[in-house]
Design a protein around this nucleic acid. Structure first.
Lengths: 324, 324
DNA sequence: CTGTTAGCGCCTTCAA
DNA sequence: TTGAAGGCGCTAACAG
C-alpha cells in the first residue's frame, strides 16, 4: 500500500506532525477543534500508525512471547488460546514458541524473543534445570522453575500438590488396597502432584509404587503399562498425573480385559476434552482463569500498575466420572 | 540492557558503521581482515542487531502471521507447530491468531497483522463467505476460500474429496446397506469430503442421509447423534468428517449399546492422537508435509524465488483400525 | 574495499 | 495550544 504516514496527515490537516502525534496518542495539549480536524483527516486517509517506527522510538513492540512445552497438548493450547484472546483485546499480539521441555530450545527462544524486543514473556518452564529470568517482564505459568537470581516473581499455577492429594484421598475412600501412581518426567508440576498424592497416605509410603514414564503422552504411558501388565503385576487404583497418561493406562488395562473401575480405578489430571469424552475421573484445572490472570498481570505490569510479585495458586477440583 | 548499537561496534573496531552493517549482512565489499576484526568486536560486546530498527528500515519484520480456526484442535495445533519450527530455522517468528471460524474476527486479525507489517500470512480460511487477499504474501492452507479478486494464489491442502471418496468405498466394501455421513458446517473441507463421499456411490445419492452438526467437535456430534438415536433411527455405517465428530458419534452409539463395528461402522478424518488411541478407522492427513510445504513456499516468496501459484494437493490415506 | 550521508515513521523535548 | 528539530538503530545509495 502507498503507506500514509503522519506527514501526509499533517499536510492535509494543516497542523504539524507533532500535533498529529499528540492527537493520536491522546497526549493532551491540543484544542478540541484541531483534534476533530486531525481525526477527520486520519479517517479520510485511512491512516494507521506504523508499528515498527513506533516500536523503534518507544522500545515497545506490543508483542508478548509465550513459551510453552507443547502446543499440541490441549491443556497448553487452551492456555495460549485464552492468553491470546485476552491480550488481543488490548492490542497485543502473541508470539508462541514450543520447547518440547528442552532447555536448549528454551534458551534459544528466550534469546529470539529478547532480540525481537517483545514487551513481555509468559513462560511455562519447570524442568530440573535452573533458568535465567529474561530481561523483559516475565510471568511464570503452570510451573515454578528453578530461578538463577531473582527471588521475586509472578507465578501462576494450579495447586498441583492438593490435586495429587485429592486423588490419593479418593482412591483410599473408594477402598483401593494397592494404589499407585503413573507420572511423567521430573517437572515441577509432576513432582508436586506426586508429593501431594503420597502425602494423602498415612501408612508406609515406600509401599506405594511410582511408575515413571518419559513423556506425558499416550504412547509412553501405554507402553510402560503394557510391559508392567505383561509381567503380571498391577494394583487396584492409579493416579495418572496427566489425562493423556491416564488414557494410555486405561487402554493398556482394557487390552488385558481388566475392568475399570471394578478391578482398577483411574484418576487423571487436567480435564481436557478427552477426559470428558472417555468418562475419565480427573482433576480439573481452571485453564481460562489462569490464562486470563496471567494476561491481566502482564498488562498491569506493562501499564506501570503495581502488581505483587508472588505465587498465585488456583484450586483444583475433582471431577468424578466413570473410572473412579 | 545497555543496548549496544552498531555505532559502538564501529567505534571499537575502528571502521565505519556502514562497514559493520555490511559485515553483519554479509553484503560483501569488505576485506577478510576487517571482517574478522568486526566479528570479534561484535562477539566481545555481545552485540545483537536491533530488529525494530531493521524492520523500520527494510519494511520487513520477519514475523509471519498464522491464522487458524481453533488452536485447541490438535489438527491445527500440529499444523502451527510444524510451521513455527520450520520458520524458526530461518529466523522467522510466528504470530498466531484464532478465528473460531468467524469472519469478523478473521478480518480484524488480518488487519492487526497488516498493521504490524508481518512479512507474510499463512491463512486457514474457508467459510461460505468471500475474503480479501491480504497485501502481504499469503498462503492458503487446508482449505480453499472464496477469494474476492485474485485468481492466482498458493493453496495447500489434503485431497478432501478423495478422502471422502475412500471412506465411501470402504463402507460399501464392508457391506454397509444404510451408510450415512455426519459432517460439520459449510466449510470448504467439509463440503469436499461430503462431495467425495457421495461420489463414491453409484446408486441414488438422495437416499444417503446427511446429518450436519454445528461445530466439528465432540459435544455437537454427540448431541445430534443422541437425539437421532432417541428417535430410533440409525444406519449401519457412518463417515464422520472429523475425528472429533467420530468420537461423539462413537460414544452416542456405545451409550445405546450399539456395537461398533458389528452393527455400525465408523470412519473419521484427520487421524489425530485420539483416533489412534480409540481404535478409530480414519483418513490420515500429512500434517507435517503440508505445514513444511507452506513454510517453505513462504520462505521462497520472501526470498524472491519463483513459486508457481497454484493448488498443491496432498494424498490422504486410509488408516484401518477397529471401527471399520 | 571503505566512509559519508540520507532517511524509514514516529515521539518528545524545547521554544514560542 | 502549537511547531521545529533531533534522533531511535539500521540499510542503501553514492562517492571515493
Amino acid at each position: 500500500m502507498a503507506s500514509i504516514s503522519m506527514k501526509k496527515v499533517s499536510e492535509l490537516s494543516g497542523v504539524s506532525i507533532a500535533t498529529v502525534s499528540r492527537v493520536i496518542n491522546n497526549n493532551g495539549r491540543f484544542s478540541r477543534a484541531t483534534r476533530d480536524n486531525v481525526v477527520a483527516v486520519i479517517k479520510e486517509l485511512g491512516y494507521t500508525p506504523n508499528f515498527m517506527a513506533r516500536a523503534l522510538r518507544t522500545n515497545k513492540t506490543r508483542n508478548i512471547g509465550v513459551i510453552v512445552p507443547d502446543i499440541t497438548n490441549e491443556f497448553f493450547a487452551k492456555l495460549t488460546l485464552y492468553i491470546q484472546q485476552a491480550l488481543f483485546e488490548e492490542n497485543y499480539s502473541t508470539i508462541i514458541y514450543n520447547t518440547d521441555e528442552n532447555k536448549d530450545l528454551e534458551e534459544r527462544h528466550i534469546q529470539a524473543l529478547t532480540a525481537q524486543s517483545v514487551s513481555g514473556i509468559i513462560f511455562i518452564s519447570g524442568g530440573g534445570y535452573s533458568v535465567n529470568i529474561p530481561e523483559v517482564p516475565t510471568i511464570f505459568l503452570d510451573r515454578k522453575p528453578r530461578l538463577k537470581d531473582k527471588n521475586n516473581y509472578i507465578q501462576i499455577r494450579t495447586d498441583h500438590f492438593m490435586g495429587g492429594y485429592k486423588a490419593g484421598e479418593l482412591l483410599q475412600k473408594l477402598g483401593c488396597k494397592k494404589p499407585g501412581i503413573v507420572k511423567g518426567p521430573k517437572i515441577f508440576s509432576q513432582q508436586e502432584r506426586l508429593r501431594g498424592f503420597l502425602a494423602s497416605f498415612t501408612g508406609k509410603k515406600s509401599d506405594i509404587p511410582v511408575v515413571a514414564v518419559e513423556k506425558v503422552d499416550y504412547d509412553s504411558a501405554h507402553n510402560v503399562l503394557s510391559q508392567m501388565l505383561g509381567r503380571g503385576l498391577h494394583g487396584d487404583g492409579y493416579f495418572c498425573t496427566t489425562d493423556w497418561i491416564a488414557m494410555g493406562v486405561m487402554h493398556a488395562l482394557e487390552e488385558r480385559k481388566i475392568k475399570i473401575p471394578e478391578q482398577v480405578k483411574l484418576v487423571g489430571f487436567d480435564d481436557i476434552s478427552i477426559a470428558a469424552c472417555s468418562g475419565l475421573t480427573t482433576i480439573h484445572q481452571d485453564i481460562k482463569g489462569m490464562a486470563e490472570t496471567a494476561a491481566s498481570f502482564m498488562l498491569d505490569i506493562l501499564n506501570g500498575r503495581e502488581v505483587e510479585e508472588r505465587e498465585y495458586v488456583f484450586d483444583s477440583v475433582m471431577v468424578r466420572r466413570k473410572t473412579a
